[in-house]
Nucleic acid binder design. Structure first.
Lengths: 319, 319
DNA sequence: AGGACGGTTTGACTTTTGTCAATCGCCGTG
DNA sequence: CACGGCGATTGACAAAAGTCAAACCGTCCT
């Protein structure tokens, strides 16, 4: 959709206002419309990514804690969001920082893999709009027919929408009832292609799930409590893109994982930039597992989690 | 200069205002300062690239003329700036469009080569500030001790400053009095290195000079009128980064060119993205030469020039 | 043809932001 | 220790931007 004549006026208004630096009333006079219309066009321009306003995330990367963590965990980059100490809204800063960081990591023409979860959806929701033609957003894992609004396909779509990018959805369930069916479905050309395409991504965005009773995969009905117990007994430490990982960050060898339609761990690790975002303090153990597996290159966490991680990393080094 | 504690407050204000979406008075309350200070911090944040506001240049790429030119000239991208038909200031839009396009072409960690001239300097001057750490701006040609403020080193420095990038200046004169001295100087490790580094640039920005009596190189004293006549007789068609090119876009085989400290044509062509910006209609012939030599991949011109180029390209195809 | 509907556009009003002279606080100097 | 200077900060005012109900306009349906 290259030439959308209706948008021309919005582009022009945005150009005159933001690039030429005219005032709204001057733009209005120039375009022979009322100033109120100009104000509206400018809002639309911001909302559709015709103009982009982005704040540096330098502040959070400069944080001493962040630097220490980068060092201790050998990560490419870490951002530490303040634990809403300042009296503003209780909404955590983590997803907001993550959204800004994520936008900053996207390069022209990039291929981006996104998983799902409350965190990922919140990031999508807080993310500014941008106009990144040529960017492709691919879904890392199958869908859940769950009552959640942060379904995998919704996360993918919403992020693609915000970026004005192409969204590539994975039209398959996350979990199937038998291993055979899952294998057969994975072999289907359409699905195969999508899963293979994950390796060629430049950037991945995902969070990490717990393997508790109130875990995401349990709430969504992917796993029942009996199976959860079995998984934990087998060494489950966390969940990434629906897949259960063990304490070393490897895919747990279990029936559940074999019933999945989702990225495998090696494909994920083939993506050069892997942004992991963790909000809840309860995800300490799962995060440790992911880090152990080298699944994360870029990390956004809250200050509390950052401190715990740093303590852990230093304790580990001393022994 | 990673941690500049004085800037912390600016970062924080920018973050709360632009990312959290607080109002200035809310930010002021949050940070326990007056709203006026917040307003000032925010201006600083914009001026230093802590926040970036960029308008899409889609409008100019969508121009029918631009598409036709891309096609006819086999260029990667063309932007056509309107010839200030709309009653606003007479300042041409070309450099402003170019500045926006240029910013949009810069990728993370890029190496950028810039030449010099009034056009390039005007672009630098109109360019928004950005915070692109890891970007390097290298000077494509030697310096002129001219009374101009748009000296090669100033262009490089100003662009580097706006981008918060590293500026790599070429500390040598553009033209020397003898071929021998120029050759010797080019062989100097410091200079050699800089000239070799041009090949590894990702993006180049330059304009094109004429070979008339009021040409840049004449005004700056690099060439006197007698030599100019000789160059024109020898087939000079234009000037790029101080170097005289013939009608086919090749470096003219002449004493003047051998006395230069500047990028050679092959190195320039080794840069994948070469953004050429042309303001004046008088530069039609020089631009034709540059296009013939394949020196240009991305082009920003005014509407008048665009029409002339298109007519020319089509006439050429018919014969 | 009339009319109801969805959307854009506008004028009038309110809120937010930009500006600037006056003031404060700090530091070096006589 | 008082003084002058200088940059940062503020209060108050002016300018600009945001908002919203009402008007308008094309179009589709009855």
């Amino acid at each position: 959709m290259p030439i959308r004549t209706a948008d021309q006026i919005i582009h022009k208004a945005a150009w005159l206002y933001y690039s030429h630096g005219l005032r709204q009333d001057e733009v209005a006079r120039e375009l022979n419309i009322s100033r109120a219309s100009v104000a509206m066009y400018l809002r639309k321009a911001r909302e559709t990514g015709i103009v982009t306003i982005s704040a540096s995330t330098q502040l959070f990367a400069d944080d001493v804690l962040a630097r220490q963590l980068e060092d201790a965990l050998k990560l490419d980059a870490v951002w530490v969001a303040p634990d809403s100490t300042h009296s503003s809204d209780p909404t955590a800063d983590v997803p907001l920082v993550a959204a800004n960081v994520f936008l900053g990591l996207i390069t022209r023409g990039a291929r981006i893999g996104v998983a799902w979860g409350r965190t990922v959806y919140t990031i999508a929701d807080q993310m500014a709009h941008a106009d990144l033609q040529g960017v492709t957003v691919v879904q890392l894992c199958g869908n859940l027919g769950a009552p959640y609004s942060y379904r995998p396909d919704e996360c993918t779509m919403e992020i693609a929408r915000r970026l004005n990018a192409k969204g590539l959805n994975l039209y398959a369930p996350l979990v199937l009832s038998t291993e055979e069916l899952a294998a057969a479905l994975r072999a289907e050309p359409v699905i195969r292609e999508q899963l293979d395409g994950i390796r060629t991504c430049d950037l991945a965005l995902f969070s990490i799930g717990t393997v508790d009773a109130d875990s995401h995969i349990v709430k969504c009905g992917a796993v029942d409590l009996a199976e959860l117990d079995r998984l934990r007994a087998a060494g489950a430490a966390g969940v990434i893109a629906g897949r259960v990982i063990d304490g070393r960050g490897a895919s747990l060898d279990c029936a559940y994982n074999r019933r999945l339609i989702s990225t495998d761990i090696d494909s994920l690790r083939a993506i050069p930039k892997r942004l992991v975002v963790v909000q809840e303090d309860s995800k300490f153990e799962p995060l440790k597992a992911a880090l152990a597996g080298g699944l994360c290159t870029h990390l956004v966490v809250g200050a509390g989690m950052a401190r715990r991680l740093l303590d852990f990393a230093r304790a580990g080094r001393e022994t």
